[in-house]
Computed example of a mutant assay.
Amino acid sequence: MPIALLLHVDIAPPFRAGFERAGFVLRPALRENDRSPILPEGDADEIQALLTIGSIGLRAEDMAAFPNLRIICCQGVGYEKVDLDAARARGIMVTNGAGTNDTSVADHGVALIAAIARNVVSLDRAVRGGQWQQLRQIRPQLTGKRLGILGLGNIGKKIAERCSAGFGMQVAYHNRRPRVDSDLLYCRTVEELAKWADFLVVATPGGAQTRHLINAQVLASLGPEGFLINISRGSVVDTDALIESLRQQAIAGAALDVLEGEPKVPQALLQLDNVILTPHVAARSPEALAAMFQRVLENLSRYFAGQPVLSPVPGMGTE
């Protein structure tokens, strides 16, 4: 019997046939330029599986609308807006795409580091506008600089490897506790890491525990020659504090792939020329998308075959 899969994010056309061949009937429930989940057209009772992303998630009150829901799959690594307590209480499995998009996100993070340091976007725009000699700015090189990573998970480690091997950068990090498998310099606080770093990369998961870890005090510690790069979740950075720091040139610049309240972008950010903005696309390479959709399909197929899923989120077990 076909299994109804509700989509809170779209499955790219090249991958839809694989889900259909595996016995899943796709039920889109998408709202343009909105991150809030909506109910499907038709009977919610038929929904047994749901595909979402961490920044949309599924709240307990929305979960209650699906009496036969058995599994929630998060397309990427994040799951911060899925109510795990409600899922556990209902016996609903929750999986994510851990390890599927790390390389793509790390690549994008390094691209943002280079672009903001060398002012690539503003210079490109100026040259197109007919300027040349007057914009031959002196910008810092990457080689030999200090890279601070907030969140030394898979993505953070890959950024560290690229910047250390490729640019000879010194690397330090902050986690809730030191990693026993890393010999990189560990900073006990975010402020300590920011004060040490020339480039501060945010690579920590989102959610309530990390909300506004990057605040006015951290930005002040980063200082007028420091750059902030965020490729994790917009909620980790206090946007108002960041805007003020950029306005006052209290930091040298910022490069952001994620924003609080995205896809809405604060007008104040758009008016600043010391910030680069990309629309949450770090994980959107062909290779990463293929790996993410394959992981979703494998988790779904294994679950409904009574086999352990490949990547349950922590605390969900492998039933």
Rank of each mutant, 00 (worst) to 15 (best):
A117P: 00
A86N: 09
L152P: 00
F199Y: 02
G78T: 09
E262R: 10
L51F: 06
L112I: 05
R177A: 14
I214E: 02
R302P: 06
L272T: 03
G151T: 02
G207V: 10
E32C: 11
L289S: 09
D124T: 09
I11R: 01
D257R: 02
G261F: 10
M63Y: 08
D102S: 13
R211K: 15
S55P: 05
G130S: 09
E260T: 14
G317N: 15
I214P: 01
P308Q: 13
L269H: 11
G148C: 01
L270F: 13
A29L: 08
N96L: 13
K145W: 04
A203C: 12
L222H: 03
P67E: 08
P14T: 04
A194S: 08
D124H: 14
L259F: 09
I116N: 04
F304L: 09
R295H: 07
R211G: 04
D124I: 03
I231N: 00
V190H: 06
K195R: 15
A290C: 12
G78N: 06
Q141H: 12
T95V: 08
F199T: 02
R177P: 06
V296I: 09
Q249P: 05
R128E: 14
G234K: 05
I53L: 14
A86D: 08
L26I: 12
P37N: 13
L135V: 06
E191W: 04
Q48S: 13
F19Y: 10
I92L: 06
Y173Q: 02
L219P: 00
D10N: 14
G54Q: 07
S232C: 12
K195F: 07
F66K: 00
A22V: 08
P14K: 10
S104F: 04
R162P: 03
R295G: 04
E41F: 05
L185Y: 09
C187R: 01
N274K: 13
L184C: 05
L152D: 00
V281S: 07
G144E: 03
F66H: 01
G156C: 10
A126Y: 13
N154H: 14
H212V: 00
I155W: 00
A283G: 15
Q217R: 13
L142K: 01
R295L: 08
R233W: 03
R233A: 03
L185T: 07
F15P: 01
V237T: 13
T100L: 13
R146E: 05
R295S: 10
I251C: 11
P263K: 14
Q141A: 08
L50T: 04
G109Y: 02
I276S: 04
F19N: 03
A216K: 12
P14N: 13
I251G: 02
A44N: 10
I113T: 01
L219R: 07
T189P: 03
A255M: 06
I243E: 09
R16N: 14
R88P: 01
P266R: 05
L123Y: 11
I251T: 04
D240S: 14
S301G: 09
A60M: 11
G234N: 09
P37H: 10
L152G: 00
L112R: 01
D183P: 04
I276M: 05
Q75F: 15
G78L: 00
A87D: 02
A65S: 12
L242Q: 05
V82E: 00
Q75G: 02
P178V: 04
V121Q: 10
A290Q: 09
G130H: 12
R27E: 15
P178L: 08
T95G: 06
Q249S: 15
P178A: 09
K81A: 04
G42V: 06
